[in-house]
Amino acid sequence: MRPSQPFRPFFALAALDAIIGVLPWLASGGPPTPEWHRDELLFGMVPAVMAGFLLTALPRWTRTAPISRAGRNALVAFWCAGRLAHAGLPAFAQPLSAGFILTFAAILAHRIAATRKSREYKVVALLIIVGIAPLLPAALSPRVALAGTLGLVAIIAGRIVPALSGAYLALHGHEPAPRLPAPVEYASALALAGALAAWCLAIETHGLAGGLAAAFQSVRLLSWRGWQVARHPGLLALHSAYLCLPAGLTLQTLREAGLDVPGGEAEIHLWSTGAIGLMCLAVMASMIRRQTGRPFTNTASATAALAFGATAVPLRLLAQADAGTWLASAVFCWVAAFSLFLAAFGPVLLRPVAAPRSAQPAIPSGAER
C-alpha cells in the first residue's frame, strides 16, 4: 500500500466539503446564497476530486514518479486554506481557490512537458479555464467554471467508462464494445466545446450548437453499451451521470429553439448534480477500488451512496417547479450520498489497510485512465 497517494486525503476532503456545502440549507431551512453553493461545488469539492484523481493517475499516464508526500501535503494545505477563507475570509477565497487550481495545473503541465505526452495538454487547458474562473466577473465566473468542469468530465469519463465497462463485460464472457472512430471523438469534443462556449458567452445559436453537441454525446454514451453493464451499481452510476451531460444540452437546445421548457435552470442542475456530483461519487469509488486492489463489486454502503446520489438528480429537477419538500429531499439525498461514501471508504482513505481477499478478479490495470 502507498499511504501517500493523493487520492486518499483529497477524496476524503471532497466528500466532507460536499456535505458542508449544503449545511446552510439544513441550518436555515432555505437555500444558501448562489455564490456559496456554487463556490463549494466548483471551487471546493470538484478541484479536490480532480486533484486526487489526476495526481494519482498521472504516473501511469506519463510513466513518471508519483508526487512526493511533501508536495501532496502542500497542495492539501493550499486547498484547505481556500476552503477556510471561503467560510471566514471571503475576500481571500476566490484568489486562493484560483491559486490552488492553477498550481495543480502547473504541476501537471510540468510532468506532461517532461514526458512529451501532448494528448494530456487538453486536461491542463481545461484546468486553467476552471482556475481563472474565480477571478472573472460574477456574471461570467460560474458559467466558465461549470463549462470547464464539464469538459473535464467528458475527457475523464471518456477514458474510464468504456475501459471499466469493457473490463466488466470481459469478466462475464462478453465482447467489449468497440471504440468510436477517432474522427467521431474529435467531432464530439469540438461540438461540446462550441456549445459550452456559446452558453458561457450567451451567444444565441437557436439550438444548433447544443443540439449537435447533445447528439454527439448521446452517440458516445450509447457506444459504451450501458445496458449491458447495468447490473453493476458503480458502472450504472457512471453511465447515468454521463447521461446528464447530453440531457442538459437537450434542454438548452429546446429552450433556445423557443419551446416552453419548464425550469429555467434545469440544465444547470442536471450538469451540477448529475454529470458532476454523481460522476464524482462513482469515479472516486472506482479509483479507490482499483488503487487498493478491491474486487469489481460494491459494498452495501457504497451502493447506497450511489443510489442516493442518483436520486438527488431528479429531486433537484422537481424542486425547480416546487421547492418545498422536493428541495429538502434533494439536499437529504446529497448529504446521505456523501456520508455513506465516507462510511464505505473513509477507513481506506484515512489509513492504509490490507485489501480483502476475494475470488473475484480486481479491476484490470489502467482502468482509471
Rank of each mutant, 00 (worst) to 15 (best):
H239F: 13
H239M: 11
L243G: 07
L245M: 11
L245E: 04
P246V: 06
A247R: 01
A247Y: 01
A247K: 00
L249S: 02
T253M: 14
L254H: 07
E256P: 08
G258P: 10
L259N: 05
D260S: 11
P262E: 08
G263T: 08
E265C: 07
E267W: 11
I268V: 14
L270K: 01
S272C: 13
A275M: 09
L278C: 09
L278K: 07
C280H: 03
L281I: 10
A282D: 04
A282S: 12
A285N: 13
S286D: 07
R289T: 04
R289G: 05
R290C: 14
G293P: 03
G293E: 03
G293Q: 12
R294N: 09
T297N: 14
A300D: 08
A302T: 06
T303W: 05
A305D: 09
A305Y: 03
A305K: 00
L306N: 02
A310G: 09
T311H: 00
T311N: 05
P314S: 13
L315F: 07
L315P: 00
L317F: 07
L317D: 02
L318I: 10
Q320A: 06
A321M: 15
A323D: 15
L327H: 10
A328C: 08
A328H: 12
S329K: 01
S329V: 02
S329G: 13
W334L: 01
V335S: 04
A336K: 04
L342F: 11
A344D: 10
G346K: 06
V348L: 15
V348W: 11
V348T: 13
L349M: 14
P352I: 11
V353M: 14
V353K: 15
V353Q: 15
